[in-house]
Design a protein around this nucleic acid. Structure first.
Length: 892
DNA sequence: GCGGACTGCTTACCT
DNA sequence: ACAGGTAAGCAGTCCGCG
């Protein structure tokens, strides 16, 4: 495709004319011109500035392929490698040895060997390794049998004996990632194509801005971090694209009401599809069906919706495919596992040729040939996204729950099976799904799309992968990128373990690998004027300040062995900064010194502030995981001593800080990992402590929260704080946990509200009386069995795994789940089980099967007591006594 | 055969 | 497929008990 033909790709060609109800069909649409094949795409000679959004390997032409999104034409263009880059892996065998292994030398994919130098960070020296170049990536690795990376360790001993331990490096990196790394490409950033070459676009304004930021806000940084800071800032300050997109949702026929047809078999017709785009265009495609013959085709829909009937399923699917080709970004909710999967297999089944289907099937993903498919289910499923980007607003990852939590909108409830809906009901239902799917990407000024773009840039991964993979893959990717950039050998996991060993400290929790953070025993009671101070990103700070990384922990130098991490026998390198320390440290400083403050800076224009907020949140997600990955076996640069050293230094930091605070005469009420609760400190004391931390620990200790007063129970990770403005901060208390019955939770909320009103110690006495009344009332209601709705008594517990896999014990929610199964309800891992406690064996029942008179009220009273005790003991109140009064009152 | 002390399993939470 | 630490409830087991 060339620039001169850009115009041909604008929608006007493919635009559908709204078909009048009851007439015409989609048939003739099949005859319309299709987008041309990949071979013509290769002619891409020139392209104005466009965003690098994805990279793949195209097996048909054996080349790396970059997908570029042009924000003016709003189209995706494919650019193919023209540099002759080839797939490869590295080995410690010599070229001569390689040539003597017939299965490698005669491998159809084998191309060449050459000797290259790499820096081996584990040994701190440059080594010579052999680069095995292949004709295609699958010959290196990826096929189940006969890959070069597997043959080498298999055949070497047979031919050469055990003279050396045969090693293969960098053979498990996806080829397109390898291409990105080697060519130092920056996904998410603007590029142009000129005379067939891919060239980065320099944005003068952004470049000047970068310089300014570095000069003004980072002048005190360690010098060796400056280049890292500069590259991160560039990635984050360059402008973002507006991404035109369409949300797709399909409905399929099913003869069995409760069963969704298997997407691989795709046995039944696609009966409806909705396409809702970011420019306000909405279409519903409906299949005219035999089983609906004679029914009204009147679809009552808003005027901005085009409803189109098709007589033929093939024509309907063709129209969907046309849209999939036309839009640069396609959004689904669970498209990998259903919508696109079904369409792909259904299309094959009803006679489409492979070339006519714009979908690239994978094992677990279904990508699009000419666009970017974002499956929001995968994105919202991501734990880090769930917890840090969306503050745990949603629990179950269903379209309905995510949309209601984030947008306040839900799916349309339908009372009959999909196949029995009228055309109008079906259209509405399907359209609504597509609308909320799109809105999940557009709310809050396109937050999700921007997050994806920012994460794409940081991680150096294609946008499709970023949206599907977890935070540890993002971190791995930018670390691998940095290895290649510095010509460092990327070590195998076992290389790191064999040099660095495992951990030496003993975890408190059985089964854990090493000791973690310190939690200080709280001083129970009510404390007025509490300041909570914490270290900003403690673990990333430690990684930065103490130079932690796989190469620096237990480094090979004698002169470093005295630099011991307290509480461990690990030492840290004093000669050279580890890559991870530089990467994580610079990201940390960027968030703390630049993006977080700017995201709150009211003097900035809103759009700018908003963008900074997106960045700040993306950085938070990555930083929060940056220590944990070193202790995760699933991480390629897994290095337990690094994780262990980080935690050990953390303990040292918090312990010293507590000691210092006490020296300054401040009472420390509580502390957890990186925070300390100080009783009524003067601003002088706070300032002194903060300056001390900066000076002696090299870390920022700031006031995070100020409580008018805090109620500490005797339990760790359990407290309540009331801010100056009267808002309440509840942590860990049972009364706030999501699984407890609403009935109890309501009374707990009452208590919370009452506590919020207390302004001074003097006001506490009155509050205590009111709190007694609240507890009494709840007790009364239970004792007298005066609940309104049995649903309010339900415990709601998530099933961690499928019911039959509980073999060691049978927890109550599993008992309830099994009762449901007996009734024919399908139960799977992740389902929320709602049950009540009843008098008769097995003492629990799913709430939908239980009646009021079998409820065991005393069990609820016991639960009420333990829930309220957490607060009552801190207030000097006693549940039994409160209830005792009630009992007396009952007689009076 | 029963009941209390104990351990282990499970979930939800904190940092 | 980021980590460890804490709380709580219940299931299951052990052990004493003439």
């Amino acid at each position: 495709m060339t620039l001169s033909r850009l115009d041909d790709y604008f929608p006007k060609n493919n635009e559908l004319v709204k078909t009048k109800l009851g007439e015409g069909s989609g048939e003739q649409l099949l005859e319309e011109p299709r987008k041309e094949e990949a071979s013509e795409d290769q002619a891409l000679r020139n392209l104005p500035p466009s965003y690098f959004v994805s990279a793949t390997y195209d097996g048909d032409v054996n080349l790396a392929c970059i997908k570029l999104y042009n924000p003016d034409s709003k189209q995706i263009y494919r650019w193919y490698d023209n540099t002759g880059h080839k797939p490869y892996c590295l080995t410690n065998l010599t070229p001569e040895e390689i040539k003597k292994i017939p299965r490698v030398a005669d491998h159809p994919g084998f191309e060449d060997v050459e000797v290259v130098e790499k820096y081996d960070a584990l040994q701190d020296r440059t080594i010579k390794v052999t680069k095995i170049i292949a004709r295609d990536p699958l010959s290196i690795g990826g096929r189940p049998r006969g890959c070069i990376r597997d043959i080498i360790p298999e055949d070497y001993p047979k031919i050469f004996g055990s003279e050396k331990d045969p090693k293969v490096w960098e053979a498990a990196i996806k080829y397109y990632q390898c291409y990105i790394y080697d060519r130092k490409l920056l996904p998410g950033m603007p590029y142009r194509v000129r005379d067939g070459d891919l060239i980065p676009v320099i944005d003068k304004e952004a470049e000047e801005n970068i310089k300014r930021i570095l000069e003004t806000s980072f002048k005190d940084e360690p010098k060796d971090l400056l280049p890292y800071l500069e590259s991160w800032i560039r990635l984050l300050e360059y402008p973002a694209a507006d991404m035109k997109r369409v949300a797709l949702d399909i409905e399929v026929y099913s003869p069995i009401a409760t069963r969704v047809p298997d997407a691989e078999e795709a046995p039944y017709q696609v009966i409806c599809a909705s396409l809702v785009d970011s420019e306000g265009k909405k279409r519903v495609l409906l299949l005219r069906r035999e089983d609906k013959r004679g029914e009204s085709e009147e679809v009552d829909s808003p005027s901005d919706v085009d409803v189109i009937f098709f007589d033929d399923e093939k024509a309907l699917i063709s129209e969907i495919f046309r849209a999939l080709d036309k839009y640069p970004f396609v959004i689904t909710f669970n498209g990998d596992d259903f919508d696109l999967k079904y369409l792909y297999h259904r299309a094959q089944k009803i006679g489409f040729r492979r070339k006519e289907i714009p979908i690239d099937p994978g094992r677990r993903v279904y990508l699009l040939r000419n666009s970017i498919h974002i499956d929001l289910y995968k994105f919202f499923y991501n734990r880090s996204i769930q917890v840090y980007a969306f503050a745990q607003k949603y629990r179950n990852v269903t379209l309905d729950e995510v949309a209601s939590a984030i947008l306040g909108k839900s799916k349309i409830e339908i009372s009959k099976p999909i196949s029995e809906l009228s055309y109008s009901e079906l259209a509405k239902y399907c359209l609504n799904d597509a609308e909320i799917t799109l809105e999940l990407t557009s709310y809050d000024d396109d937050l999700v799309m921007k997050l994806l773009l920012v994460l794409t840039r940081i991680s150096k991964m294609p946008m499709e992968d970023v949206s599907r993979q977890g935070v540890s893959r993002w971190i791995r990717s930018f670390m691998q990128y940095e290895h290649r950039r510095k010509n460092m050998l990327i070590p195998n996991q076992e290389d790191i373990i064999s040099v660095k060993g495992k951990t030496t400290t003993k975890a408190i929790i059985k089964g854990k690998k090493y000791k973690g953070a310190i939690v200080v025993h709280p001083v129970p009671g009510v404390h007025f004027n509490v300041a909570v101070m914490d270290f900003q990103s403690l673990y990333p700070s430690i990684i930065k300040v103490h130079n932690l990384g796989y190469q620096s922990v237990r480094c090979p130098h004698e002169e470093c062995k005295g630099n011991i991490v307290p509480g461990t026998n690990h030492w840290i390198c004093i000669k050279q900064r580890a890559l991870e320390s530089a990467l994580i440290g610079s990201l940390r400083d960027l968030r703390v010194y630049w993006y977080k403050p700017r995201s709150k800076d009211k003097s900035l224009p809103e759009a700018k502030r908003n963008w900074y907020n997106v960045i700040q949140r993306a950085l938070k997600v990555i930083l929060n995981a940056s220590y944990g990955v070193f202790g995760a076996e699933t991480f390629d640069l897994y290095c337990p001593p690094v994780a262990e050293a980080t935690a050990a230094i953390g303990r040292e930091v918090i312990t010293k800080t507590i000691r210092k605070a006490e020296e300054l005469g401040i009472q420390v009420l509580y502390g957890d990992t990186d925070s300390i609760f100080l009783k009524n400190p003067s601003s002088e004391q706070i300032k002194t402590l903060s300056e001390w931390a900066e000076k002696t620990l090299g870390m920022e200790l700031d006031v995070d929260k100020l409580y008018r007063y805090a109620v500490l129970s005797s339990r760790k990770k359990n407290y309540l704080g009331v801010f100056e403005d009267g808002s309440v901060d509840v942590k860990g208390l049972t009364g706030k946990k999501r699984h407890i019955p609403r009935f109890i939770k309501r009374y707990f909320d009452e208590l919370e509200k009452r506590l919020a009103k207390v302004e001074s110690p003097a006001e506490f006495e009155e509050a205590k009386e009111d709190i007694k009344k609240i507890v009494q009332e709840c007790y009364y209601k239970l004792k007298r069995r005066e609940w309104e709705d049995i649903n309010d008594l339900a415990f709601e517990v998530v099933l961690g795994k499928s019911p039959e896999t509980y073999t060691k014990t049978t927890p109550q929610h599993v008992k309830a789940a099994r009762l449901l199964e007996k009734r024919g309800v399908e139960i799977k891992a992740g389902d929320l089980i709602r049950f009540v406690k009843v008098i008769k064996d097995p003492y629990v029942k799913p709430v939908e099967l239980a009646s009021d008179d079998e409820i065991d009220a005393d069990k609820y009273i016991a639960y009420l007591q333990s829930t309220f005790d957490q607060i009552l003991d801190a207030l000097g109140l006693d549940f039994e006594k409160i209830i005792g009064l009630t009992r007396l009152e009952q007689f009076m």
